[in-house]
């Protein structure tokens, strides 16, 4: 169980892993996430499922090295196993025929966006995707996104690939030229905040998929609380997708830093080892 069967480096910090878990491969839906734990003394952390193959019994995860746990996951080689893997968790994306979907992914957020793009396309929607990153080497899964999109705009902050500018520049371009019925954004919290502000101007219904801190992922701990429309929600059981125009992103950004000082200490210790 949970054996790594494929490993690919998108960059030295971003890694794609194909993991054996037939049950999750069969039961997961677009938008679901899993909780992982590496090693007996490992930490539990969530990761949205990027893809699944029910026939082969595998799921695909894309991880960006940001701290100890992601580094431990990324260090696993083909043939090794993830100690604990549970899911699928969270409410799946509400997929139906809506018309034209604007799908926006920033950085590794493109990975969890991929199954949603695929599902919307298969449901008969026109899908226009905007994927963005700081620079060319951080653009991931472009071909896969293209496969399920009617049109794709690539944005890089430094202009090393696609068009130069933030994701919102690409979004504006699409919104100006055609009618968008719904928008989905996944990426760093700060990017989602500005993406949400962009679509709010045009009153386009927008969902954002959040990557809150979690321990159990089943509603038990409340670490993932987020304020949506003035009410406290749990990302794990009420989300991970919420109405992006109602999310308090500033609070979310603050909460993502809730264990930063502990994380820095742990990371320095891990690197020294």
């Amino acid at each position: 169980m949970n054996k790594i069967v494929e490993k690919e480096y998108f960059s030295d910090k971003v890694i794609r892993l194909v993991v054996e878990n037939p049950k999750i491969a069969r039961s997961r839906k677009a938008g679901n996430f899993v909780i992982l734990k590496i090693g007996e003394k490992g930490e539990r952390f969530p990761l949205t499922i990027a893809d699944a193959d029910p026939l082969k019994g595998t799921i695909t995860l894309v991880v960006q090295i940001v701290g100890v746990s992601s580094a431990k996951l990324a260090a696993l080689e083909v043939g090794e196993s993830i100690t604990d893997l549970v899911g699928p968790l969270g409410k799946p994306t509400d997929i139906e025929l809506k018309g034209t979907i604007l799908a926006c992914g920033g950085g590794v957020g493109v990975a969890p966006l991929l199954p949603i793009v695929e599902a919307f396309k298969k449901a008969g929607n026109k899908v226009v995707s905007v994927i963005a990153a700081r620079s060319r080497d951080l653009i991931i899964l472009e071909d896969e996104i293209r496969r399920w999109s009617d049109d794709v705009i690539v944005m890089t902050d430094d202009g090393s690939y696609g068009k130069q500018g933030l994701i919102t520049v690409g979004m504006e371009e699409v919104i100006q030229r055609e009618k968008i019925d719904e928008c989905i954004v996944i990426g760093p919290a700060i990017m989602m905040k500005f993406a949400a502000l962009t679509t709010k101007k045009y009153a386009i219904p927008t969902q954002a998929s959040l990557n809150s801190i979690m321990v159990d992922g089943t509603g038990m701990c409340g670490a993932c609380r987020v304020t949506v429309g003035g009410k406290t929600k749990f990302t794990c059981v009420d989300g991970p997708e919420f109405d992006a125009h109602e999310i308090n992103f500033d609070e979310m950004l603050m909460r993502l830093g809730g264990y930063r000082s502990e994380e820095v200490v742990a990371n320095n210790k891990y690197i020294q080892k």
Partner: peptide
């Protein structure tokens, strides 16, 4: 009964305020 209750008072979502479930689980 794994869903912790909060009091819904101002500032309750600041960092360093957590449910007993989260604290004890950690």
């Amino acid at each position: 009964a794994g869903l912790p209750r909060f009091m819904d008072i101002p500032g309750e979502n600041y960092n360093g305020i957590l449910s007993s479930n989260e604290y004890l689980t950690r």
